[in-house]
Design a protein around this nucleic acid. Sequence first.
RNA 1: GGUCUGGUAGCUCAGCUGGAUAGAGCAACGCCCUUCUAAGGCGUGGGUCAAGAGUUCGAAUCUCUUCCGGAUCACCA
Length: 597
Amino acid sequence: MNLETTIGALVAKAVETLYGLETKIADIQLQKTKREFEGELTVVIFPFVKAARKSPEQTGREIGEFLQQNNPVISAFNVIKGFLNLSISQKYWLETLNEIHTNSNFGKTPVTDNSELMMIEYSSPNTNKPLHLGHIRNNLLGYSIAEIQKANGWKVVKTNIVNDRGIHICKSMLAWKLFGNGETPQSTGMKGDHLVGKYYVIFDQAYKSEIKELTEKGISEEEAKKSAPLIVAAQQMLFAWENNDPEVRQLWEMMNGWVYAGFDVTYKQLGVDFDKIYYESETYLEGKEKVEEGLENKVLYRREDGSVWADLTADGLDEKLLLRADGTSVYMTQDIGTAKLRYEHYPIKKMVYVVGNEQNYHFQVLSILLDKLGFEWGKSLVHFSYGMVELPEGKMKSREGTVVDADDLMEEMINTARETSQELGKLDNCTPDEIESIAQLVGLGSLKYFMLKVDPRKSMTFNPKESIDFNGNTGPFIQYTHARIKSVLRKAIDQGIEFKSLTSTDLVISEKESYLIQLLTEFPAVVKQAGDEFSPALIANYIYDLVKEFNQFYHDFTILKEENVNIKQFRLVLAESTAAIIKSGMALLGIDVPERM
RNA sequence: GGUCUGGUAGCUCAGCUGGAUAGAGCAACGCCCUUCUAAGGCGUGGGUCAAGAGUUCGAAUCUCUUCCGGAUCACCA
C-alpha cells in the first residue's frame, strides 16, 4: 500500500469520525504540496467544510490533528486557507529510498505466463519511397508504447504491415524499367529505398509533363490525368501483377527487396524492431474472402456495377466501398484481411494501431466493420492516433522537396553530437569506437526525446535547427546528468565506499533530498498513467523534472566530500537510484543513456 | 457544409479527471568553474491561458456561443 492510499484512507476515517461524513477514498483530493509551502502532501479541505460546519482552517486543523495522532509517518502539518499540508517523516522517505534502491524492477509490472497479449502495429511503410520525418514519429511512438505496455505487464507483439502492392510501387517499377538503364543499389551505391524513391519521383515528373502536353492540346486536366500513357501503363502493370505475370512479379520482388534492405538499415539505426511483419500482398486476398462472407450474411451489399459496399448510415457514417467493380480490393479490405490473419496467429486481447490522425475516420469505420463482420474484438480496437509533424514552413510536401529524410536527419544529429563532444573536449580520453558510439547515442537521444516529449495526440512543429540544441529540456541534458552520476559512482567505488543500501535511516536530510526521494516514488504511477493514456510524453516530462531537480542537488551538495559517512552513503544511494530511474525511464522511450559523455 | 481536433510567454511545449500567486526550455540580459563532468547551476525581464457567457466556495481545466487554425468526409493509401 503506498503513501497516498494509506493517507487517503485515514482522511476518510477522520472525516467520518469527526463529522459523520462518509466519503469514498477515491473522492478524497490528495495532491503534491506546492513547492512554496511546507509539507509534501496536501489534503483539499473544501469538500468537508459543509459537513464540519466550521471554517476551512478549523476543519483542516482538526483533520490534521486526527491524522497525526493516528499515523506516525506524518511528522507535522499546517493549514493555509482550505489546504491541509502534511509533512512526512524523514525516516519514511529514507526507508522508501532503501526499497527503491534494492528493487531492480522498480516501477514495472512483471510480465508473466498469464499476462494478456497486446499487438501493436506501427511503422506501416509504403515500398515506393524512403522513410521520412513523419515515419520517425510513428516508429518512435510505436516502439515506446510497446516498451511502456510491457512495463505495465502486457505481453507485446510488435507488428508492421508493409504496403508492398498497389499502384504506387508500379509507378516506381515502370519508371525504372523505362528510364533506369539497369541501375541497382550495387551499381549506384545508393540505399535501395532511396533508389526506388528516386524512380517514384521520376515517374511523377514524367507523368506531369505528359499531362501538360495533353492539356496543351486542349484536353481537360481531369481527362489528361486519366489518359496519360504513363498512368495507363502503370495500371496495366498493376493488372499484370494481380494476374501473376512472371516478369512483373520478378521486377516487383527485386525492387521491393532493395527497399527492404534499405528499411532494415533505417530501422536498425532508429533502434526499432518488429516481432512479426505482414505484407499486404499476402493479406489482401483474405480480406476479399471475408467480404464475400459479409455478402452472404447480408452485412454488405453488391451494387449493379458489381462493387461491394457497407451501409454505415445507421451508425451515423456514410456508405463505404469494399471491393471495386472490377473485383480489386481497397485499403479497407486489406485491413480486414490483415486483422483476420493476425487474430488467427495470436491470442490477441488488445489490438493497437499506431497511425496518424488523418486516418481517424478510416479506423472508426474499420472498428464498426470488423464488428459487423463478426470479429468480437472489432469494437475494442485502439487507434493510437497521433498528430502530424510539420516544419516551420508548414506541411512537408514530397513534390516540393521539403520532406525531411529519416536517414539524413539521423546522420545530421549524430554529426552534431560528435562535433559538440569534440568542441567541449568531453571525450578526449576515449577511443575512437567509444567516441562514435557516444555520438550515436547522444545524437539519436536528442532526436528521439525531441519527438517523444510532446503529447502524441497533438500535431507538432519540427524545427531542424532548434531540435539540434543539446541544452535545456533535451535528451542530451538527461543523458549528461546520468553520465555525471555514473562518474561520481565510479569514483566512490574506486575509493572503496560501500553503498549497497542505507546502514542507517535515522539521518537528518535536507528538504531538497527528501523531495528527490518523493519524486522517485512517483515513477510507478507515471509508468502506469503513460500506459493507460498511451503517452510516452508523460515519461519524458517526468524524467526531465527529476533530472532538473537532481542537478540542483548536485550543484548545492557535495557527495564524495561529505564528512558524515552515513550522509555520504545516503547521497550515493540517492544518486544511484536516480540514475537507475533515468536509465529505466529513458529505456521506455527507446533512448539509451551513456556511462560518460 | 457535416464530423473530429487544436488555440497557454517572442518561439517550442507542460499544466486540462476543477483547487493555493499559471510553469519549463529556447531566445535576451546578468552572475557562478583552484571543489564529484559548466552538455551544468542561479537570477532578471516576458502572460487579457483566442473572445464572451454559464455552472461552482473556486475555472487555463467543465458546458454553451463566437472567432481563428488543422484533419477528414475518394472506386488513394
